[in-house]
Design a protein around this nucleic acid. Structure first.
Lengths: 343, 343
DNA sequence: AATGCCTCTGCAAACGTTTTCATCGAACAT
DNA sequence: ATGTTCGATGAAAACGTTTGCAGAGGCATT
């Protein structure tokens, strides 16, 4: 961090007090409980604040109060349609309750996560949300040592060390697969998302494969692949798979980005969708409904997860004694659009 | 904000000092300039910290030092491919210099912006980056009153109150349009992005129209429309425009999202791209190269803008005396892909 | 007039760091 | 033996708020 800065000295509560002819205590009361200050005094303070351009020092306040008004969010990356939606909703919900979001990204490297947690704790976040259920030991340890209110977003499962708000990604993988099976598909190519440090992808995969097993359909190794989170890369992968024979009749895509790549691959090869090939995605990213044909996908309510996560944390802060668990399992649904059809 | 929380009392520097049998001053020195502390003492402090799970209190440090190690970023919204990329790069660059990003979004409502600035200043950000050149008076006022190092990202122009790092969006609009003109197009439909609180869109529009004027081509009102930032909405708009006669031979899209909508509209109508219609976008969002056919677009280096913005702010913090202006105009280039062709 | 209550305000002690200055030994040169 | 320098540490004063406690004055009740 920087050395001590000697900048134009910023006006503090004492300057305001002096100018308004009152004590600092009164100014403080003015900004925290205005109604206890006499009208006339209030006016004087107001104009003093106006004149000096006074903005209270959050660090001092935070030091005194033991709460910073800041809540942390740790995501794999911001630069991803779906986490961006989540973060935006989270931030908006916090703003509504006059708190601020401190966001940090670890780039799917869970070992870096505990460093971020520590950094956020150093900034004295009042509460913390993380994406996913899987975390390294230090992360859990530091969190419980401090007993900072924390939630895990995105993935839902029972009996977790912290409340979860999200969907059951095994269910997500399952319903997507079942949809294809119901349409009569037997030869399905599975393009899973990368699974390093990504328990959502792991769960989807396990849900998908168990649905196949339940239907008694074998999934040979050649029908399982892992695609990066990138339209172009997924497209190339799909092109390769679609030019080999025999060609699958359907493709399960671990997320909508991969599904888009598949769609474009099919277009470039002149394969008609859904006549020659069914494609299903996961996520319902913005734009997935607009692509031609519309992408059938499993909707994951990212915004709602973000909003509820924020609200629940605030609730935990405001009623710290409440012994209720705050888990929330959100429903998933298959959005039927044009990219899947009966075989 | 919350009332005073009475939580498990968190260990402070004094607890560490007591446990290690030294004074708080020594512990402080340990974490700031470890080399001045005797090896043996250092070891004792280390194990005390370990045992207590001590994490320094940023608020106290910030209060004392007058610097928080936090840098603010204000964007219209996080939930937008391009700003997410920017924010991610910004955050990463800050992290590399051990600072943290505090991000806030105003949803294209510039009047809300000054509230956010104030909130960030209350959190004592050491510096601030905002997107765009156009801001309400209070925003500028509060910033210059405090003389907090600030930069304006995304849009570049000379003689601005704060350093700009970005591209000249008039140039962006111009080169996109010139590309279409060079290909022989005369009847071009312009789908601009919404311009409320969005000076980037305003500039692109003005660049585009002036390029047309320079080429002596008239653009009737019916060939100018404004599209929301949404694939589906842009698609509907484009469908309407493409079913009317006469049909334009090319469409200028204010950004890649709109361009995607146009592409899908054309597909759904059986209009061949680029044979029957040329489409150009702006931004080079991820995935724009993978769509079929590849989208010709004007590349805007969002990541680089984010990274440079962060680096420049840090530079301004570390050498506050340097009188050099830190503006940076980044180059733009037309990426030729499959969606445009000679008429 | 004395008493009590209420409203508004001030005093001063925290909160957890960093940093200047001073102190104390030890090592070293004279 | 005496002075000098150096390295390692401690004491204490900030930094800018919030808040419990108490005091001052006004008003109503006895």
């Amino acid at each position: 961090m920087a050395r001590r800065l000697l900048r134009k000295s910023i006006p503090g509560i004492i300057d305001v007090a002096r100018l308004a002819g009152v004590s600092p205590a009164t100014v403080s009361r003015y900004s925290n409980q205005p109604d206890v200050v006499r009208y006339e005094t209030r006016k004087r303070i107001e104009s003093a604040i106006e004149e000096l351009g006074y903005v209270p020092n959050g660090a001092a306040r935070s030091l005194n109060m033991g709460a910073s008004g800041t809540i942390g969010l740790i995501v794999p990356t911001i630069d991803n349609a779906i986490f961006a939606e989540l973060a935006q909703a989270f931030s908006t919900a916090l703003f509504r309750h006059s708190r601020t979001m401190l966001i940090a990204a670890h780039g799917y490297d869970l070992t870096r996560e505990s460093v971020l947690v520590e950094s956020l704790i150093e900034h004295r976040v009042d509460a913390l949300a993380v994406v996913g259920l899987k975390h390294e030991e230090p992360t859990f340890e530091i969190l419980s040592k401090r007993d900072i209110p924390a939630v895990m977003l995105w993935n839902y499962r029972e009996r977790q060390p912290f409340p979860c708000i999200g969907v059951d990604n095994r269910e997500v993988g399952r319903v997507a697969t079942e949809h294809l099976i119901e349409l009569g598909h037997r030869d399905i190519l599975f393009l899973f998302a990368g699974m390093r440090g990504n328990d959502r992808a792991v769960d989807r995969r396990s849900g998908a494969l168990s649905a196949m097993a339940a239907a008694g359909i074998d999934v040979p190794r050649a029908r399982r692949a892992i695609s990066p989170y990138d339209v172009q890369a997924a497209k190339e992968l799909a092109v390769k798979a679609l030019t080999a024979t025999p060609r699958p009749t359907a493709i399960f895509s671990g997320n909508d980005v991969i599904a888009l790549g598949v769609l474009f691959a099919a277009m470039s090869l002149g394969i008609r969708i859904p006549d020659d090939l069914s494609v299903i995605g996961i996520g319902d990213f913005r734009g997935s409904s607009a692509v031609e044909p519309g992408l059938t996908t499993v909707r994951i309510p990212a915004r709602r997860i973000g909003r509820r996560g924020a609200e629940i944390l605030i609730e935990m802060l405001d009623w710290p004694v409440a012994e209720t668990r705050h888990d929330e399992r959100l429903p998933v649904e298959v959005l039927l659009r044009g990219s899947t059809a009966q075989i």
